[in-house]
Simulated assay, not measured.
Amino acid sequence: MAGPQFPERAPGTPDLADMRPDDWVARWLPSSWGPYARLCRLDRPVGTWLTLLPCLAALVQAADGWPTLFRLFIFSLGALLMRGIGCCFNDIFDRDIDQKVERTRFRPLTSGQLSLKNALWFVLAQLAVCALLLFALNEYSRWLAVALVPIVIVYPLCKRFTYWPQVVLGIGFNWGMLMAWSDTQNVVPPGAIAMWLGAVLWQVGYDSIYAYVDVRDDIKLGLRSTALRFADKGKIWISGFYVATVALWLYGGMSMGMDWPYYVVMAVIAGHFIWQMSVFSLSRPDRNFMLFRANMAVGVLLVAAALAGTVLQ
C-alpha cells in the first residue's frame, strides 16, 4: 500500500533555515560565543518562551496571586537553561542527521563551527548551573528536577523509534509547571496535574504543526514524528489535541476555584485554536512555522488567565 502523499512546498516558500547570518547573535556577541549561543538556541527564543510561560501561569496559580520575585527568577533561569540543554542534546545526537536536512544544515555542530568536545563541556556547564539552582528549591522540587534530566536527554532519540516524540517533548518542557506547585505549596494537586496535562497536549498540537515543516526530510531519513503519524489527517488530530487542552484547562481552573475572568480568557484561547486550525495547511510550511510561533500568544493568554482567576478574585 502506498504511503500518505504530502504536497510539495508552495512556490515562493521562504528559507526556514534555523541559522541566520544577520541575527542579533552575529551583531552583538563575540564571534567565538556565537556557536554556543546558537547551540542552545539563544538566537531563537520562541522555544524558551513556550517553556517559560506555562510555568509562570502555574506559579501564579500556586501562589494564588503574584509569586515572589525570587521564585520568578529561579524558574525563569531554570526554563532558559533546561530548554538550552535540551537543544544541545538534540544537536549532539542529531549532528549527522542535521547535515541532510535543509532547515538544520547550518547548525553549529553540523557545519563544523563547534566541536563535539566543546559542545559536551558546554552542556556540563549548563547542568552545573542547574544543579546550583536546586539549592533554591525545596526537597520535593529537587527530586522532580532530577527526574526531568533523563526525559530531556532521551527526547532527541525518540524520533528514531516512535511516532510520538512530541509527547516526550511536551512532558519534559512543561515539567516546570509541576515544580512550580511543589515548590510553592509542597504538593501537586489534581487541578495542577490537569493544567500540566493540558499543556503537554497543547505542545503535542503545536509541535506537530512544526513537524510538518520537516516531513519530507523525515521520510527520506527514516525518522518519525506525529506529522507522519497523522499524515493528511493532521487538522483532525491537532484539533482533537487542542479541544482536550481547553477541556483540561477548564477542569484545572474549576478544581482550583478560579474566578469567572479565568474562563473569559479560556474562551479567547479556544478562539485562537480555532483560528490556527482555519489557517493550518499541509502544503504551506512557511504558514505552519508562523502558527508554531503564534502559540506564544496562547502562552501569554494562559498567564493572563491565571492572573485573571486569582488577582481579580
Results as ranks from 00 to 15, higher is better:
89 F>R: 02
189 P>L: 09
11 P>F: 15
190 P>C: 00
8 E>Y: 12
123 V>F: 13
44 R>M: 05
204 V>Q: 00
101 V>S: 00
60 V>W: 14
65 G>Y: 11
61 Q>M: 14
50 L>Y: 03
170 G>M: 01
33 W>G: 13
143 W>C: 03
217 D>S: 08
133 L>N: 08
234 G>H: 05
255 S>E: 14
248 L>H: 01
145 A>P: 02
299 G>F: 11
159 K>V: 02
292 F>A: 12
41 R>G: 02
114 L>V: 02
116 L>E: 10
256 M>S: 06
48 T>Y: 06
141 S>P: 01
67 P>I: 12
32 S>K: 15
25 V>D: 06
59 L>E: 13
204 V>D: 00
280 F>A: 06
105 R>Y: 04
99 Q>C: 07
234 G>S: 07
112 G>I: 08
288 N>G: 11
165 P>G: 00
280 F>Q: 03
268 V>S: 00
306 A>M: 13
132 L>S: 13
296 M>S: 14
236 I>M: 14
248 L>G: 08
53 L>V: 11
63 A>C: 08
72 L>A: 13
115 S>E: 02
291 L>E: 11
150 P>I: 03
104 T>Q: 03
256 M>N: 11
78 G>A: 10
46 V>E: 12
254 M>T: 04
207 D>P: 01
203 Q>S: 10
73 F>S: 10
213 V>Y: 11
209 I>T: 10
73 F>I: 14
117 K>V: 15
167 V>W: 01
67 P>E: 13
213 V>M: 15
30 P>S: 10
60 V>I: 12
156 P>H: 00
212 Y>N: 00
125 A>G: 05
268 V>T: 03
140 Y>S: 07
190 P>A: 07
150 P>V: 07
261 P>Y: 01
31 S>R: 15
77 L>R: 05
53 L>E: 08
151 I>Y: 13
191 G>P: 02
302 L>I: 14
176 G>D: 02
47 G>N: 01
27 R>A: 05
151 I>S: 09
110 T>E: 09
193 I>P: 00
19 M>T: 14
222 G>F: 11
103 R>L: 06
144 L>H: 03
220 K>Q: 08
143 W>M: 04
114 L>T: 01
114 L>Q: 02
33 W>C: 14
51 T>R: 09
150 P>R: 06
